Computed example of a mutant assay.
Amino acid sequence: MKEEIEIFKALSDENRLKILEMLSCGELCACDIQDGLNLTQPTISHHMKVLQKVGLINADKRGKWAFYSIKQDQVDRICGFIKKITTPSNDCICNAFSCNCESSGCIEE
Rank of each mutant, 00 (worst) to 15 (best):
A30R: 00
E27S: 11
M22N: 06
Q72S: 12
Y68D: 00
Q74E: 14
C101G: 12
H46T: 09
A96G: 13
G26P: 02
T86W: 08
I44V: 02
V75N: 04
A10V: 03
P42S: 09
I57A: 01
G36R: 02
F67R: 02
S98G: 11
L20K: 01
N58W: 04
I19Y: 01
C31Y: 04
P42I: 06
T40K: 12
V75T: 05
G105H: 06
C101D: 14
Q74T: 09
G26K: 08
F8V: 13
E102T: 11
L28A: 03
S98V: 12
L17C: 07
N38R: 09
S69R: 03
C92A: 12
N90W: 14
S69H: 02
K61F: 09
G105N: 05
T86E: 07
N90S: 14
I93Q: 13
L28W: 03
I82H: 05
I107G: 03
I5F: 03
C99K: 15
N95F: 15
I44P: 00
I107F: 09
V50F: 03
L17I: 11
I85R: 03
E21R: 13
E102V: 14
G80M: 10
E6K: 08
Q72V: 10
A66C: 12
Q52N: 08
A10C: 02
T43P: 06
E6L: 07
N15F: 04
F67W: 04
Q52M: 03
C101E: 12
E27Y: 15
V54N: 00
K83P: 06
S89R: 14
K84P: 06
N90G: 15
G55A: 01
A66T: 12
I107L: 10
I44T: 01
N95Y: 15
D13K: 05
K53M: 06
Q41K: 07
A96L: 14
G55C: 05
F97K: 11
I5A: 06
L37I: 03
I19S: 00
R16N: 02
V75L: 04
K84F: 13
D76P: 05
I7K: 01
N90E: 14
I78Y: 03
M48S: 02
K64I: 14
R77I: 10
Q34R: 05
I85Y: 02
A59C: 13
N100C: 07
S24G: 04
N58E: 11
I7E: 00
V54S: 01
I70D: 00
L37V: 02
A30D: 01
C25E: 15
E27F: 06
G36F: 05
Y68F: 06
Q52A: 05
D73R: 10
G36N: 05
I93Y: 15
C94T: 13
I70G: 01
T86K: 15
I70H: 01
I7C: 01
A59R: 06
I85F: 04
Q74W: 11
G80A: 13
E21H: 09
L28C: 04
K18R: 09
K71V: 02
G105E: 07
N90P: 11
